[in-house]
Amino acid sequence: MAGGEYLVSDAALRLEQVSIVLDGRVLIPPLTEQVPPGTVLTLMGPSGAGKSTVLSFLGGTLAGPFRACGRIWVGAREVTTLPAERRRIGTLFQDDLLFPHLTVGENLAFALARTVRGRRARTARIAAVLAQAGLEGFAPRDPATLSGGQRARVALLRLLLAEPQVLLLDEPFNRLDAALRAEFRRFVFAHAAAAALPVLLVTHDVADAEAAGGTVLALRTDASATTFIERVGAEGRTGDRAMAQAELETKGGGR
């Protein structure tokens, strides 16, 4: 679908004993995982469980009362102490967060890596990316005039144009209605696979996890309110009873 357009990355994302603590309460117990390029790791859990906080920690924007421990590696690079802008870890949020004062094309140009030089080359590249995403001629448009699905696609294109080495998905499908959601999911995973990015997906929707088709980790809380992580689905084994159970529990229980 988008092959050849992106620099193919070959760095894996590796988490080493990553944990999140809030006021002395362990939100996320120590987690050690490796996400090879081109694969998806899904973290499921109820809202407020601290899933998005993990992504903030990985992305380098953790703030407020949360405390995080552990080390983050992108390939052979340790990024734990790097500022957000030097980690090359891109996050796709639930809101598209397109910059309202810039056109669609300018939003993309803002993100497009400096390796593409010259105004003409940059404009051409943006036009090509838009055309491939079914948004031909959208460059001069005001983001406010786009539909939700179109905005979501532009947000992903913007993220990928910055040539990240890791993709973090923070419930990006939630805002879309059912029909658009499936389509946008395919769009995201196809682009991520084409760029061979390691992807970490955070969600509470089992359909997202199934579509991702990788390892699924579920955040659970036991009777003594201790949080633990359970591996409920492995690669190639999706849609089973354990997954359904995981969704039930994350929706009903938790808090």
Partner: peptide, 21 residues
Amino acid sequence: RRQLEVAAALGYGRTSAWLKL
């Protein structure tokens, strides 16, 4: 705050992101 986070993920330092966005 959110927009600066997006810009940081795109590789921008906070000063140039603030001035541009």
